[in-house]
Design a protein around this nucleic acid. Structure first.
Lengths: 327, 327
DNA sequence: CCCTACTCTGCGAGCGTTTGCGGTATCGCG
DNA sequence: CGCGATACCGCAAACGCTCGCAGAGTAGGG
């Protein structure tokens, strides 16, 4: 049903190869011929088949993106950023969600790798050796975790924690709880390390809680521990946890920030809508996605003149109503 | 680098076609041969090339999904549902975000259609004729809007509004504001129609406001109008708007639900986390996505024994703290 | 006016599969 | 023991495109 290049060639009165060339390297074909071909193509509504092209070129003009959970606002933004960038560079984006199940992840990545030129993997908890293994036969880049010499885009986790803690310290807090995220995830490791650094380098007394699953429910569970710890402020692994803490605190009638200050990390959209609005560390989520695409393309098409992708993104504390002076 | 079927054939000592058959119709090949082939394939890590297969079969085992905004929690869930279903049926999913720009949408859909077997389109505001046109040469299904005879999965908008209004009426509210969404979107039309029906069929006095862009900012803008209207309760086109209303109301010190009850539609995750938690109409967002996939596959593979897809999904009011008896 | 160099175009092989068609064993049965 | 049926398997032609190679035509220089 859809017209093929052969048909275009017939209509334009040229050979099949000329049609192909007209589209691929227009400068190598006489302007006059070019016009004829383009006109024919247009009139037939010709669209080259990416599958067929891919067969000979080995390029599908498709990228893959694998995340743990599409509904997690963090990854949602990564997907959005990646999608937008991929599209603007002429690539389609296959997205997949592992549902936090890293067992099937390998198979998933491999299967996507057969249809894509490369894949961007967001997989905080998959064992390093599994990833290295995978990277051996799929061209891929990582987001939010370094791993062997697989190219990676990360964010400056330690600086984020530092900013949050500096803020709380400036408000007079000295005893601060950290509600940890998934043990073994690179981000949690980094954040925890920064927490410990802060404790050693200042007069802060840090209380490490957790780990908790990085969802609202985890925060709800953590809130009572935070309260019992005697801390006057709490920093959570991510905003979802902070949201849960906030919710539980409200339920227990605890005044925020009067009695307890709360800081999250990620600055997801919902953070601005809580009562009080959540102070949080803004992390460039969408930029991570688009940087992932850039990094991948840098390997796929070294000749394309894209600016070399940033691979360590800066973060910035956003102060809102959930933090105040220590009681 | 990756081994091809030809290589597998060589190792297994059979012909290329036998390899192909072994994978496609294992029952048509002798068990003994089958084992040899499978063993060879496994040892070589053979993975058939979807592109090459697609060339001859015309099937790419890939579906497309186009939504207006990936970061809108509504569509996020649709994507998640579609992704999950597609994956479980052996399809990859290309997702794209139009950024609410329906001008490029047509081109986007067409370009995705060349790489996919069919596309699921979520496009509330694109003109009917444009879609019909598109549907003429892409196999596609719609989500959340009917259009000509293009297959569609919708939700029961009118019933949702009815449930919300019944709830408010039962609480004693008689003067209720409706904060409208994007004019011209099918969902808004339906919801508005249901609002008017309710007004005619009961003693409710409805105040129509808007339209507003269906984001938090729109709700913030609407809140003051709601307050000035003398209504004791407000139903919004969607939760994002309700969140905005809630936020502005809090800012102005209006007691919810004491002085004003608020009801949203969609029941996005954030709805449970506001203060007070938002009463909302739960709509099966993920189910819309998976139903979209089912509907599409029903056309693509009529022989596959999937349960005939539901095409009109039921909704259910979820009562939370933002609604109370009329003052 | 010829030769070279260059530009443009067509030829054909191949990319990795699927699949219809036909061939060869093998088997059952009379 | 011979025949047809049956079960497997291989051959080769597609699928729609790209790209190296070479032929044809043209322009320019000597």
């Amino acid at each position: 049903m859809p017209a093929g290049a052969r048909e275009v060639a017939r209509v334009a009165g040229v050979s099949l190869s000329t049609v192909s060339r007209t589209l691929a390297r227009p400068d190598q074909v006489a302007p006059e011929t070019r016009e004829k071909v383009l006109a024919a193509a247009r009139s037939l509504g010709y669209r080259p088949s990416p599958a067929a092209r891919g067969l000979t070129t080995g390029r599908t003009q498709t990228l893959g993106l694998v995340v743990p959970d599409l509904e997690n606002p963090y990854f949602t933004s990564v997907v959005k950023g990646a999608q937008r960038r991929a599209l603007s560079l002429g690539y389609a984006l296959i997205v997949a969600d592992t549902d936090e199940d890293s067992r099937q992840e390998v198979e998933l990545v491999r299967s996507i790798a057969t249809r894509a030129d490369g894949v961007i993997l967001c997989s905080p908890r998959t064992p390093e050796e599994v990833i290295v293994d995978l990277a051996a036969d799929c061209t891929m880049v990582l987001v939010n975790r370094p791993c062997g010499d697989v190219p990676t885009v990360t964010i400056d986790n330690r600086d984020g924690v530092r900013q949050a803690l500096d803020h709380l310290r400036a408000l007079g807090h000295r005893r601060i709880a950290y509600v940890g995220g998934p043990r073994g995830s690179w981000s949690d490791d980094e954040r925890l390390a920064a927490v410990r650094d802060a404790e050693h380098e200042s007069d802060l007394e840090m209380i490490e809680l957790g780990s908790f699953r990085p969802y609202v429910s985890g925060g709800v569970a953590a809130a009572d521990l935070v309260l019992a710890s005697g801390a006057t402020a709490v920093l959570t692994y991510n905003d979802l946890l902070a949201l849960g803490v906030l919710d539980r605190l409200r339920q227990r009638g605890v005044d925020v920030p009067g009695r307890m200050s709360v800081v999250g990390i990620d600055n997801i959209p919902a953070a601005a809508l809580t009562t009080p609005p959540l102070t949080s560390v803004e992390v460039p989520r969408a930029a991570s996605g688009s940087a992932g695409v850039d990094l991948l393309l840098q390997r796929l098409e070294p000749e394309r003149p894209v600016p070399p992708a940033e691979d360590r993104l800066a973060v910035q504390l956003v102060v809102r109503g959930s933090t105040g002076t220590a009681p």
